[in-house]
Design a binder for these strands. Structure first.
Lengths: 165, 165
DNA sequence: ATCAATTTTCTTGACGTCGAGATATGTGGG
DNA sequence: CCCACATATCTCGACGTCAAGAAAATTGAT
């Protein structure tokens, strides 16, 4: 089955036959697939009245385990957004009653963000919904193919994740 | 080599041992890699004084071939943005002299966006730079692995690209 | 011809993010 | 002690995107 990147690559080969556009075969597919996934995620979360950014913050706290609390700084590094953005997100989540701000007992500059019971439940429900949807998307591939794909992708992500970048 | 998704999956398995989180092994890597690629692209384009969104529009026109012109509607479907966004982008590119708006001779509602000579040169230079950078990222993989990865990704993107989504 | 439905592009207002800087607290050398 | 520097979080203004809808032209059925 042909996809949009096949058409894109064919167009470049026609217009710029002097260039080697093979890298696009992999990386343009990664970018486009991510874009499609964003839209699909937005739909899946809408059933739980959550925005993708809310899910990202709530699940970061959920993964931390009891007592489900992290500093804003830790949330920054996990979600790859800037501090201004995170302040705004915490404000809105707190207003919805999904998280609460607590003073950090060991550092008076600091704050701890803790998941409320409702926040934890919402995160758990949304995760289950997301996984169902992702399974449907991945049904195109056999289990062995999924494993292979995960391994190849890991080789590309590891340098970004391990070198300070 | 371990990556951030390995850590993320391990955390979920600890916190939610009841859930099958295998889908994340593939799709979280796709999303995270796309995010890293966005940052890398931004850096590569900065050397040519282009923003990623400018590149997207200019190269869509470039790929169309002479006379390098498309309607705003055609640009929408290629770049996956909304019409308000595209109007804004065309305005700014026109102000920079990289594209120009022409009336569509066959439909008086319509407009054609045409690449200027400078726009074409800038697009060509930026593409060469992008490909260099992408080749460096993909150097982690052998040619055979890149082909395999491209094929597996195509199976996932094809349904999105071919079913009206 | 006429009119409703469709298509194409642009306008507008709300929203979320970023980046730079402000404020407050903590840390270590002299 | 004191001061410079580092760290943690928040504030604020600019910017790009989106969604909804307005304006203008085309199409097709009657």
């Amino acid at each position: 089955m042909e996809d949009e990147v096949d058409r894109l690559v064919a167009a470049w080969r026609r217009e710029r036959p002097d260039l080697d556009v093979e890298p696009l075969e992999v990386l343009s597919r990664v970018s486009r697939l991510a874009r499609h996934l964003d839209r699909a995620r937005r739909l899946a979360f809408a059933e739980h009245n959550l925005e993708p950014w809310e899910f990202d913050v709530l699940t970061a706290l959920r993964r931390a385990g009891t007592p489900y609390q992290l500093s804003p700084g830790q949330l920054l590094t996990q979600t790859l957004v800037t501090s201004g953005t995170m302040t705004n997100r915490i404000d809105r989540l707190a207003k919805k009653g999904l998280v609460e701000r607590l003073p950090d007992p060991s550092d008076r500059r600091g704050v701890l963000v803790r998941l409320t019971d409702e926040g934890r439940d919402r995160a758990d429900q949304a995760l289950a919904g997301l996984l169902d949807q992702e399974r449907a998307i991945l049904a195109e591939l056999s289990r062995a193919q999924r494993g292979e794909l995960a391994g190849l992708l890991r080789q590309l992500t590891a340098p970004f994740d391990n070198i300070p970048g």
